[in-house]
Design a protein around this nucleic acid. Structure first.
Lengths: 191, 191
DNA sequence: TATTGGTAAATGAATACTTACTTACATCGC
DNA sequence: GCGATGTAAGTAAGTATTCATTTACCAATA
C-alpha cells in the first residue's frame, strides 16, 4: 500500500466481504479470499472486524442500509415501491442474497433492523387498519418483489423463453406491480 | 450395527443429511456429524453417495419429492394450494430450507425438476392465457406461500404480537389465501 | 450338516489439505 | 520515537476423503 488510510482499507474489506458473502454465504466464505480481493490481508480483517462473523454482521448491516437508502418505502403506493425493489434486486442481487443468507445462517442479525420494520409497519397500518394486517401485507409484498431473483432458473424458463431477456423482465415486473396493487386494494377495501 | 441392511442404512443417512443440510447448508454441514446422527459412519456416506455434494444433491431431490407429494397442485384453486403449501412449510420447514440453500449454493440442482415445473406451468396456462403469464403467476404464488417462514423474526413481530401464536398464524394464512385469490382473479379477468 | 469360500456391509484410523486466527516484525505519518 | 497501520509467515484445530481391515450373511460343496 502506498497511502495509509484506515477508513479506505476498512471500506475495501467490507466491499470485498459483501461480494464474497453474497456469493457463498458465511460458512462458504474464505477470510483469505476476502483479504486478497480487498488488496489487504487477513490481519486487517481481524483488526477492524474482530472475527469472521463480525465481518459478516457488518456486511449484512451495510447491505440492509444500502437497500433501504436506495429504495425508500412509499406507503401511499406500495405497488410502485415493490416495482422499484424488484428493479434494485435485479440490477444487483448482492444485498438480497446477503440478507437471505443472514436469515438462514444468522437469523438474529437478519432481525436486527427493528426500527426500520416498525416504521414501515406503522406507515402501512394507517392504510390497512391494524398493525397486524400491515405486517401480513408487508411480508407478502417483500416476497413478491424478491420472488423472481430467488426462483430456480428451471421454473423461470418453464415457458420456453429466456428468463434474462428484457421483454421477460418487463413482463414480470408488470406482474409484480399489478399483483401488489391488487392485494393492497383488497386489504384497504375490506378491513 | 446388529442387522445389515443397505437400504435402511442409506435411508438413515439421507434422513440425517436432510436435517443437517436444512439447518446449516452445504458448506456448513459436517460429514462426520451426519454419519453420527445416522448411527453410521463416514465411510458409508462415501460408499452410497460418492461425496458431500452428492449427498446434498440426493437430499435436495428427496426434499422436493416429499414436498410435491405432500402438496399436490390444484390448478383450479391456486389459493387453496398456496394455503396448503403454507401449512406444509410451517409444520416442517426442512424441505423449504433445503431448497432455498440449493438455490443459493447449487442453483443447477435447484433447477433440476424441470418436468414438475413444466407440468404446473401448463396446467395454470390454460387458465391464464399464456405460458409466460403462468410462470409469472406461479413464481409469485410460490413466494407468497413461503414468505412467512422466510421473513426475519423482527418483521414478523413488528406489530408487537407473538409471531408463533396460533391466532397470528391463522391470520397470516388467511392473508396468503386471499392474496393469491385476488391475484389469480386479476390474471384471469384481464388476459 | 458342517466347512468353506465369496461378497456386501460396516468400521476406525490415517492422509492430505484447509482454514480461522495469531505472532513477530516492518513502515508510515506526526 | 511512537502509535497507528500494514505485512508475511506461522499454528493449531478442523475437515473431506481414502485405506486397510473386520464382520455378518449366504450359498455351494464335501
Amino acid at each position: 500500500m502506498v497511502v495509509r488510510d484506515a477508513e479506505a482499507t476498512r471500506a475495501r474489506i467490507l466491499e470485498a466481504a459483501l461480494a464474497e458473502f453474497a456469493a457463498v454465504g458465511l460458512a462458504g466464505a474464505r477470510v483469505e479470499r476476502i483479504a486478497a480481493e480487498a488488496g489487504s490481508n487477513v490481519r486487517m480483517i481481524y483488526a477492524y472486524f474482530g472475527n469472521k462473523s463480525g465481518l459478516f454482521d457488518a456486511a449484512v448491516r451495510s447491505a440492509v442500509e444500502t437497500m433501504a437508502a436506495a429504495v425508500p418505502p412509499t406507503p401511499d403506493s406500495l405497488a410502485e415501491w415493490a416495482g422499484r425493489l424488484f428493479d434494485f434486486h435485479l440490477e444487483d442481487p448482492t444485498a438480497l442474497r446477503v440478507s437471505l443468507w443472514a436469515q438462514l445462517e444468522r437469523p438474529a442479525v437478519a432481525s436486527e433492523p427493528m426500527g426500520a420494520y416498525l416504521e414501515k409497519t406503522l406507515a402501512v397500518a394507517t392504510r390497512v387498519g391494524s398493525a397486524r394486517r400491515a405486517v401480513d401485507l408487508l411480508v407478502i409484498v417483500y416476497s413478491i418483489a424478491q420472488a423472481w431473483v430467488l426462483s430456480p432458473q428451471g421454473l423461470l424458463a418453464a415457458d420456453g423463453s429466456d428468463p434474462s431477456s428484457p421483454e421477460r423482465i418487463v413482463s414480470h415486473r408488470a406482474a409484480v406491480v399489478r399483483s401488489v396493487a391488487a392485494i393492497v386494494d383488497l386489504e384497504v377495501s375490506q378491513p
